[in-house]
């Protein structure tokens, strides 16, 4: 049985998507602003779990945004900031999952799919060509196919 009750008791309870709070911030450097936006987009809120801390209206997200702001202005690197977050909340906060032995399948998966697809494609293409050589197409099929080509192309 799931502890669904827990979800009701999270900090600041509700996650009113659509009521985003945004904070005007003064930046010492324009590049900091860009880094700030990129970072908070990639950190997942623990309270409103399907929003980044950039989008989340939870108080915790506001605190974390402020911490990111202060760390950037304090000269900390992006790595230091994500390390700060993962030390406290684990890899869960990262929308870009780190490469670990447990995520190799995730990162390599799509390439693997493409490889499988490519192999199947190559096999199919070879078979299709040789099929014509063997002349397995029935006369009726061929006739109909040619009619279709003439009709459609």
């Amino acid at each position: 049985m799931k502890a669904l009750g827990v979800t009701l008791l999270l900090i600041a309870c509700a996650c009113p998507a659509g009521a985003t709070v945004f904070e005007p911030r003064e930046w010492s450097d324009e590049r900091h602003r860009q880094r700030y936006h990129d970072l908070i987009e990639e950190l997942r809120c623990l309270v409103c779990q399907n929003q980044s801390i950039a989008d989340s209206d939870a108080e915790l997200a506001a605190d974390l945004r402020r911490i990111v702001f202060e760390m950037i202005e304090g000269g900390e690197s992006d790595e230091a900031i994500t390390a700060y977050m993962t030390e406290r909340y684990g890899d869960f906060v990262l929308y870009r999952p780190p490469l670990t032995p447990f995520t190799v399948a995730l990162w390599a998966g799509p390439a693997l799919f493409a490889l499988i697809g490519g192999t199947m494609l190559a096999v199919t293409l070879r078979r299709r060509r040789s099929r014509e050589d063997a002349g397995t197409l029935s006369a009726a099929d061929r006739q109909r196919a040619e009619r279709l080509i003439a009709g459609e192309d």
Binding site: V6, L9, L10, I11, L60, R88, Y89, G90
Partner: peptide, 14 residues
């Protein structure tokens, strides 16, 4: 300020 809470990774009370 909730800073100790953040250090403890608190996200859902209690």
């Amino acid at each position: 300020e909730g800073l100790a809470g953040i250090d403890f990774g608190v996200y859902g009370l209690p």
